[in-house]
Simulated scan of single mutants.
Amino acid sequence: MTGPRELRRRRRVATSREQILDTAEELFGDHGYRATSLQRVAERCEFSVGALYQFFRSKEELLQAVMYRRGPALFADMRAAVAPGVGGLVAVVDAIGAFFDRYPSYGRLTIRLASPGEDTPRELSPSGEGFSGAMALFADILRDGQAAGEVRPGDPAALAEVASSLMTAYLRDREGLPAPEFREILAAAFGA
C-alpha cells in the first residue's frame, strides 16, 4: 500500500514532468529543435539543468517525449477521418488542422519536423508510426481511391510524399490559403 507521502511525491514528479513537456513543446515549436537548449527549457521551468536530467537523459529524449505525448491522439484523429480518395485526404488534413488548433505549439513543432532542413530525429513514435506512419496512411487512402477510380494512377507511396508536402505547406499557413482553395488544389493534383 502506498502512503500519503509517496502519493504526494508521485504527484509532484508527474506535475514537474508535464511542466517540462509543456515548456519544451512550446519552445521547440516556436524556436525549433536546434535553437532550443536544455538550459532554456530549465530556466523557463525554474529548474536546474541537472533537474531536467532526472526526467530525460538528453534533448533528443525530451523531444521524443514531447512527440509521444500527443502523437497517439493525433493518429487516432487521423484514422477516424480516413476515407478513400481525395475526400479522404481532405478529411485527414482537416483532422490534423483541428488537432493543431487544440495544441498549437505541438502543431508548429510537427510542421517544423516535417519541413526540410530540420536536423531532428525523423521517426518519433514508439509504435513506429511517426512520419512514416503518416506516409503509409496517406498512401493507403490514395491506393483505396485508385481502386475506386477516384484517384489518378501512380505509385501511392510517391503520391503520398507529394500530398504530404502540400499538406505541410497548407498547415504551416492556413490563413494564407483558404480551405476551399486547398481542396481544389488536392482535387486537381490527385483526382482521377
Rank of each mutant, 00 (worst) to 15 (best):
A114D: 02
A80P: 10
L137G: 03
A91Y: 01
F28D: 09
P84Y: 03
D101P: 05
A114M: 13
G149I: 12
R34K: 13
L38C: 08
V66Y: 00
F47H: 10
L142H: 03
Q54K: 14
E129P: 07
G107E: 04
Y103E: 13
E18K: 10
R79C: 13
L113Y: 03
R70Q: 11
F138W: 13
D77K: 11
D94Q: 10
L63A: 01
A51L: 13
S48Y: 06
R102S: 10
R57D: 15
E150V: 14
M135P: 02
P104L: 09
P72R: 13
L89N: 03
R143K: 14
A95M: 05
C45T: 06
G128N: 05
A73M: 07
I20K: 04
A81D: 05
S125R: 11
R143W: 08
F99G: 08
G130K: 00
D101W: 09
D155W: 09
A14Q: 12
Q64T: 15
S16C: 14
D30K: 04
E18G: 12
R102Y: 06
V151H: 04
P104I: 01
I141F: 08
T110E: 08
F28C: 04
P116Y: 11
K59A: 08
R79H: 11
V151T: 07
T15A: 15
T110C: 02
H31P: 06
G130W: 04
A73P: 00
G130L: 06
Q64P: 07
Y103W: 13
D140H: 13
F55I: 05
V90N: 11
R40M: 14
L142C: 07
L21F: 07
A114K: 03
F55S: 12
A114W: 15
S58W: 12
S16F: 15
R79W: 09
V41E: 00
A136F: 03
L142I: 04
F47Q: 06
S115V: 05
E25D: 08
E46S: 15
V151D: 00
R17K: 14
R17Q: 11
V82I: 10
R122L: 10
T36G: 03
T36V: 07
L21I: 12
R122M: 09
S132G: 11
M135D: 14
T23V: 07
G145H: 05
T15K: 15
I141N: 00
A42C: 06
G117Y: 01
L38F: 08
C45W: 07
S37H: 12
